[in-house]
Design a protein around this nucleic acid. Structure first.
Lengths: 208, 208
DNA sequence: CAGTGTGAAGCACTTCACAGCC
DNA sequence: GGCTGTGAAGTGCTTCACACTG
């Protein structure tokens, strides 16, 4: 199968969200044009995106909401649940662990790690902060699928390597560093400083 | 001036970070190749990126660390400070407000808003949660430059419109919705559900 | 006839390759 | 000789436009 662009996958998620909302409002079909409006793209783009994976629509009619919902869930790997471990029990890690919406859908936080003795053992929602030294022994028994890395920049690379060795399949990285990981580990980064600096650039350059 | 791609701006931020680190280690020049290694790109890309804004390097030598640092700060609009208001004092908003690194560099949190009477008046670090109803009157006196929107999905669009009307220049949106804003307001979105679903897709499709 | 599916065209970002300068 | 700056070529995503079908 041809490689799918990351931008395409992002849009599929957005379509899915709108489909779920539409389903809640009792709609049974949706056109590429309606999907496009709510996803901030064009109808041609919607059709192209979906056509990578098959023919889901009916000509003259549009897409069946329940059918396309199921198909997109299948495509995005959301027909199953994923377990998530939060690595780093700082302010943001703690907030993410408790945030509904982050844990919702098919992603379930199953553990929170930290190296700080002052934090280890502390309760966070239904969890207790575990010693990151136990990562390897924990993982031998039961490992989460995805790690959310919320540690300081200078310990992120080490932590990532241990996660990769311990068999984690994916890392969502919040540390402001370019992680070096073996190719079998999927990595995405969210870098808030970068986003703010992007806004700073726009405000500086594009303002009339 | 020709339009600059968002991906280019992202990389400039990454270069700047490495320049600052290198400066701390006493390096005085850096080649496009060294910059590329640490930014995860190619030397040609680095040179192209920089050439949009001028000629900063010396042939045969590379780039002067202090000079390029200054130039990039200037380009990215980081030669000045920016004030930031956090809108939404939930778990994540509160965490961001207190996170060092987020507030660091040239971005300073100056206010935190919420609509929940239970939260209004609560101290968060050096700040006190303010009633979002006061946004307009506050803004008439002194308005922050950038708003960080950390409210539930169903109130995000309303909040964004009020921020735009109140004269905010930019919004960093964490709510999982496609914000509709007037074009003079710069918007960037960070959507954690989308990132997780992107990983889910990779784990499902690309695994051998 | 409304709306999908899709080759072809268009556009934008990246990589190449080399002339030019230090 | 080393490394930048940059047109030209390459690649990949997006938009167009239209044949096709329910």
């Amino acid at each position: 199968m041809k490689r799918i662009a990351e931008s395409t996958v992002r849009r599929l998620s957005v379509y899915l969200r709108y489909l779920e909302e539409s389903s809640g409002r009792g709609l049974s079909t949706l056109s590429s044009d309606e999907l496009a409006k709510h996803a901030g793209t064009t109808s041609a783009q919607v059709r192209k995106d979906l056509s990578f994976f098959g023919s889901f629509g009916k000509r003259g009619l549009g897409y069946s909401v329940p059918e396309l919902t199921d198909s997109l869930r299948e495509i995005l790997g959301l027909a199953r649940d994923w377990s998530v471990a939060i690595v780093g029990a700082g302010k943001i890690g703690t907030a993410l662990a408790q945030d509904r919406g982050f844990g919702s859908r098919r992603f379930h936080v199953v553990a929170i790690y930290d190296v700080d003795p002052a934090k280890i053992g502390k309760p966070i929602g239904p969890h207790t902060v575990r010693d990151f030294a136990r990562l390897e022994s924990d993982s031998a028994r039961a490992r989460a699928d995805i790690a959310v890395l919320v540690v300081p920049a200078d310990s992120a690379q080490d932590a990532a390597e241990r996660l990769a060795k311990a068999g984690y399949l994916a890392i969502l990285n919040f540390a402001p560093v370019q992680l070096q990981c073996p190719p079998e580990v999927a990595v995405r980064s969210v870098n808030l400083a970068l986003e703010l600096e992007g806004l700073s650039f726009e405000l500086t350059s594009r303002r009339r």
